[in-house]
Write a protein that binds this DNA or RNA. Structure first.
Length: 671
DNA sequence: TGGCAT
DNA sequence: CGTA
DNA sequence: GCCA
């Protein structure tokens, strides 16, 4: 049951108010000099409301006090105003006479009480600021060295349309990738590549961490930081962002903040940290902020920071499950997995390029993300990492050791040192990365595969598309299909060498698909030696026998044969190549295979952590295992296909038995 | 301070 | 090391 | 980076 703790929401925020209706607003403050809001003694909620009100009136807000012509705050005395400015690195000398009205004078800064704003917002008309001005100063140079406590707010510098999101460095290597892809050609011989040896040590990815750290706790957090909120609001997190601290601006708050209440989600009020225990939709309200965190996470990936990946994944999953647009960093910091760092990033985000009520917020940003997007190192590593068969280590080797900067470099200087699958990854780089697969095509591919399985193995073969498609994505990066057959005996035995019977079946199915002309390349076919530890237990009670067993699978490159518009005879098939994975699961593993291959990644990691903590079990796509005895936990994930059970039913039963409970695949999008 | 999926 |  |  949901806690009834309520979060006050500013009425001027999205959802309710349309954006372009700015035209007929009564209050127009756009002629005023840049306004800086003093956070002192104001709650973040109040600050946010004031900002929204000012922005709604067209006022120009700044987050750099040095730029401000007007500073508004809960300040009642001259001396206080001067000190507030000085505390922010703005030194000034009082100006006695010239306190006229709203006019802008270069180098002048006026400190004004909040009443001025609340009055205007309440009346809906502009009010002379004169009677609310407590201090007028003329900016002067700081006496000595600049203090480091101040500065920055780099947030508002205009992002100069950097080279966008694509990985297109040297463009797709289409032209040069005419070279043959060897059948055997493996072994990463040392290329004859040029090498501009560069130390990986002080790269931007490493620096990004430090940057992020130093920019984290700024003023808002020192005074009333999220930490305080967390610790102060003592008992097991009542999950409530700071309500209206009492300030001199009560009326305004009451008018603009009062109404609209949010119910705190269970996972927040109960501090549930396992993403497998809560709903995470595909398109959450905070998706834009999440996408920025994903960029930082990718930077951590590319800098080999495994723990950073886990940390950001946790935060991302938590935010992705949050059903409301976040308003303040304090609110964010109530979510499990989101603490100081995450909330300070959000603070910077929400105060970056301000957004008008009702507008999309995708013009907001975070400084470190802008730096990443502008950096050659990050964008190039990201591009290399996008090559199928190239992981972080190889991407870094390309960049730092070989000095390559584009796909063309890879082709020109390194082609012969690439493994066969990497060559395929380069050849189809663009098709794999830019051309997502529509749902209808995924379904068509699945139909063809299931038909092929039935053709070679009988009508009882069944299959289910997992991966992103099953989680509801409109476009998929690849197709993951899990096939099974209700007859366990079909998979028993180890004849046929390495992989045993199951591999024989994949081989037959893939062979059929190749013959039919759908498969252009086989990137991997078999079991063991690959990834995962998807052990399957056939019959035995001893553990030794099946240590190396894994689910059989094939990783293929696929191409639709029919192209339209229908081309001339003999013309080339220009349909995009697709990545297709086929996984074969004996019925005893069908449930775990489906659960394991549906994802998303953080959902899977949390599922495994949960199952370990709750039962002491180990979960993988080949079964559930008791860690003490090493035995397979009987019946879990078993497909009772002979009794008419469907594959989804089977997964459902498994989730119940694991103590997780049913979760729609569409609600496993942990980002 | 150790753990973070398999 | 790379892959889901 | 967050949590127990």
């Amino acid at each position: 049951m949901a806690s009834t703790t309520q979060i006050p929401i500013d009425l001027t925020t999205p959802s309710s108010s349309p954006s372009p209706a700015e035209a007929d607003r009564v209050l127009d403050l756009s002629h005023l000099p840049p306004i800086y809001l003093l956070p002192t003694r104001l709650s973040e909620v109040t600050l946010h409301s004031l900002e929204q009100g000012l922005l709604g009136a067209g006022a120009l807000l700044t987050y750099n006090p040095a730029e401000a012509g007007v500073v508004v705050g809960d300040v009642n005395t001259k001396r206080r105003g001067l000190l507030e400015l000085r505390g922010r690195g703005v030194w000034s000398e009082e100006v006695i006479g010239g306190v006229d009205g709203g006019g802008e004078e270069e180098g002048l800064v006026k400190v004004v009480r909040i009443k001025w704003i609340t009055e205007m917002l309440e009346k809906g008309e502009e009010v002379e600021m004169g009677r609310w001005v407590v201090y007028v100063g003329k900016k002067v140079a700081p006496p000595v060295v600049k203090e480091e406590g101040e500065k920055e707010e780099g947030e508002k510098e205009e992002g100069e349309k950097e080279e966008g999101d694509d990985h297109g460095e040297g463009g797709p290597a289409k032209k040069k990738v005419k070279r043959e892809i060897g059948e055997a050609g493996d072994g990463v011989g040392d290329g004859k590549a040029t090498a501009s040896l560069k130390s990986p040590g002080q790269s931007i990815l490493e620096r990004a961490k430090l940057d992020a750290q130093e920019q984290s706790p700024h003023r808002y957090h020192r005074g009333r930081g999220t930490r305080h909120i967390r610790h102060d609001s003592e008992p097991s997190r009542r999950a409530r962002p700071p309500l209206l601290h009492h300030t001199s601006t009560g009326e305004f708050e009451q008018i603009h903040i009062l109404a609209q209440l949010r119910t705190v989600p269970d996972y927040v009020s109960q501090n549930l940290k396992y993403s497998c225990l809560r709903d995470t939709p595909l398109k959450p309200p905070n998706s834009h902020f999440i996408s920025l965190l994903q960029t930082i996470r990718l930077a951590r990936t590319l800098s080999l920071d495994a723990i950073g990946i886990r940390a950001y994944s946790t935060a991302i999953a938590s935010i992705a499950a949050y059903p409301y647009p976040l308003l303040t960093s304090a609110e964010l910091s109530t979510l499990p997995g989101c603490d100081g760092k995450t909330s300070s990033l959000f603070h910077e985000y929400i105060h970056s390029t301000p957004t008008f009520a009702g507008e999309e917020d995708d013009n907001r940003t975070i400084h470190v993300v802008q730096e990443l997007e502008a950096s050659e190192e990050f964008t190039t590593l990201r591009m290399f990492y996008g090559i199928w068969g190239v992981g972080v280590h190889t991407a870094r080797e390309f960049y730092f050791k070989n000095g390559w900067r584009s796909l063309d470099d890879v082709v020109e200087f390194g082609w012969d040192s690439l493994s066969r699958v990497q060559q395929i990854g380069v050849k189809y780089y663009e098709e794999f990365n830019e051309h997502k697969i529509p749902r209808a095509e995924v379904e068509r591919i699945a139909d063809i595969i299931i038909s092929a399985a039935r053709k070679v193995g009988g009508e009882k073969w069944d299959g289910i598309v997992c991966g992103g498609y099953r989680r509801g994505k409109g476009q998929s990066g690849d197709v993951d299909i899990v096939l099974s057959h209700p007859e366990e005996s079909l998979f028993e035995g180890n004849v046929g060498g390495k992989g045993g019977v199951a591999v024989e079946w994949v081989g037959r199915i893939v062979g059929e698909l190749e013959t039919a002309g759908w498969v252009t390349h086989t990137l991997y076919l078999g079991r063991g030696g690959g990834f995962g530890s998807q052990r399957i237990d056939h019959t035995t009670t001893t553990t030794a026998a099946h240590d190396k067993d894994t689910l059989a699978k094939a990783m293929l490159v696929w191409q639709e044969q029919e192209y339209n518009p229908p081309a001339e005879l003999g013309e080339k098939n220009r349909n995009p190549h697709r990545r297709v994975d086929i996984i074969l699961a004996p019925p005893s593993c069908a449930g775990t295979a489906i659960l394991g291959w549906t994802g998303a990644t953080t959902f899977e990691r949390d599922l495994r952590r949960f199952v370990e903590k709750r039962w002491g079990w180990k979960f993988d796509s080949g079964g559930v295992w008791d860690r003490r005895t090493g035995e397979r936990v009987k019946g879990l994930g078993d497909w009772r296909g002979m009794e008419g059970e469907g594959l989804v039913e089977c997964e459902k039963r498994l989730l119940e038995e694991l103590g997780v409970g049913w979760r729609e695949p569409e609600m496993r999008n942990t980002g």
